[in-house]
Amino acid sequence: MNHTVATATATDAAACRDFLARHGVFPGHVDSRWATILASHYAMQATTLLARTSEGAISGLLFCYHRNGDGHTLYSPPYGLIAGDPAAAAALQRSASEIAKAAGLGRTIITSGTTDLAGPHHRWSRQSITLALPRLADDEAVLAWLPQKTRNMVRKARRNGLKISDTPQHLPDFYRVYRSRLTEKGLTLKPPGFFTDMATLFQDECLLLTALENDTVAGAMLFQISGTSAAYLYNAATERGLQAGCNNLLMAEAARNLSARGITRLDLGESMPGSGVFDFKTKGCGGQAEVVHYYDLMRLADTPPPRLAVGLAERVYGYAVSRSAFLPAALREVLLLKASSYGRVL
């Protein structure tokens, strides 16, 4: 079957939602509202490509983005390419490569989630964790559903006096904890307005859960909701909060809150097997690991990576970040913020 590909418009929104619902994926990753955040905070251009059958029905979707001016890679977010059949997927891949070439980019890195696509491209895989949420009527049902160790940690957190808030008023305090922790670890940072804009654009589809100790933020988790699915996107906690068990309490409250909203699937995101985060999501939360597939559409299998024209600014920031542990915290924070705009941000 032949498929044509074109850029989505506002009139395609309802048909896109129906297509994504039929394919059982979390549609929030490819929501066009992310384009506004990418443009305002990262000078990145986002495009939603739609593949259609000869009858005009949507047969595939790809959300992709790249940095304007000095970018070198076209990216997709997790589960960025969703297609009804291999021919539609191939048509979307060709169109993505054409966009990259027209923009002078050297790489096109996309992911099709758990669907393994055929093709000659260089490929690799990662582990992503998904949690199936049953109907949890009350707090006792949540505790009974949790693994024993997590249940004990939730009770410990409550004994330590931690309380959960589900209001967005704590977003500035969450960002302060997030900024401090990631700067300490030498990890790239989202800019200050990123989370505020996310809350504004997604409104009721954005859920911030905050663990409080005497009205002070000990930790928080930020979720995106779409249909009957949700995604766990961002987390930060103080060292004191971690010791008090705030992450376990936050995830227990997330399960209760999301279940009450009719959410049945929670995407916990990618993690490295054997890491503490992977163990928390699987052993601590009961999530199931799945293989997700990545492709570089401008590199054939078993060939070396291309030599990219990396700009001076990116080289300088990359070099500085690699040595950021030796820099003062304030300077390290500035560099980590700047460096975040040169790679994959969703």
Rank of each mutant, 00 (worst) to 15 (best):
R67W: 08
L331V: 12
L308Q: 07
G287R: 11
R135K: 14
Y232P: 05
R181E: 08
S165A: 11
E239F: 07
Q93D: 07
L337E: 09
I225N: 00
T150G: 11
N152D: 14
E184F: 02
R33H: 11
A10L: 12
S259K: 09
A132Q: 15
S341I: 01
D296K: 08
A330Y: 03
T210S: 03
S165C: 06
P134L: 15
M1A: 07
V25K: 10
L249T: 05
A87P: 00
K281D: 01
P305F: 06
S271N: 01
G84Y: 13
Y65N: 04
H66T: 04
P192D: 12
V177E: 10
H72E: 06
K156V: 02
H122E: 07
D116G: 00
L209F: 01
A199D: 10
T216C: 05
E253I: 01
G227N: 03
G24L: 10
L133F: 07
F223A: 02
E314P: 02
N2E: 15
R67T: 03
R332K: 14
A91W: 07
V345D: 13
Y65P: 02
V334F: 13
Y295V: 02
S259T: 09
A325L: 02
M153F: 12
S271H: 02
A254H: 05
A21K: 10
V292S: 03
T130C: 04
D302C: 00
T7H: 11
T167K: 09
D204M: 02
P305I: 06
T114F: 08
L117G: 12
E239R: 14
W124G: 02
F195W: 02
F19E: 05
R261L: 15
P191T: 07
E55Q: 13
P86Y: 03
N235T: 14
K283R: 15
R176H: 09
V25N: 08
Y65S: 04
G284A: 13
E98S: 13
F223C: 05
D197G: 08
N247P: 03
R33E: 06
I109W: 05
V177K: 07
H29W: 15
L222Y: 10
L182H: 12
V316R: 15
R67H: 07
L212Q: 06
A255W: 01
G193C: 02
R181Y: 00
E333N: 11
R176D: 13
T47E: 14
C64H: 14
S95H: 15
P191G: 01
A339V: 12
G24W: 13
S59E: 12
R33A: 06
S324N: 04
A325V: 01
T183I: 06
L201F: 04
V334L: 14
R135M: 13
I164M: 12
F63H: 13
M221G: 06
G269N: 08
L61R: 13
C16K: 01
A339D: 15
E270I: 04
F278P: 02
A43K: 00
Q224R: 12
Q243E: 05
T48D: 15
L38G: 00
L346G: 04
V25L: 13
L133R: 11
M298D: 05
F19V: 06
L335D: 10
D166Y: 01
L250I: 01
A289N: 02
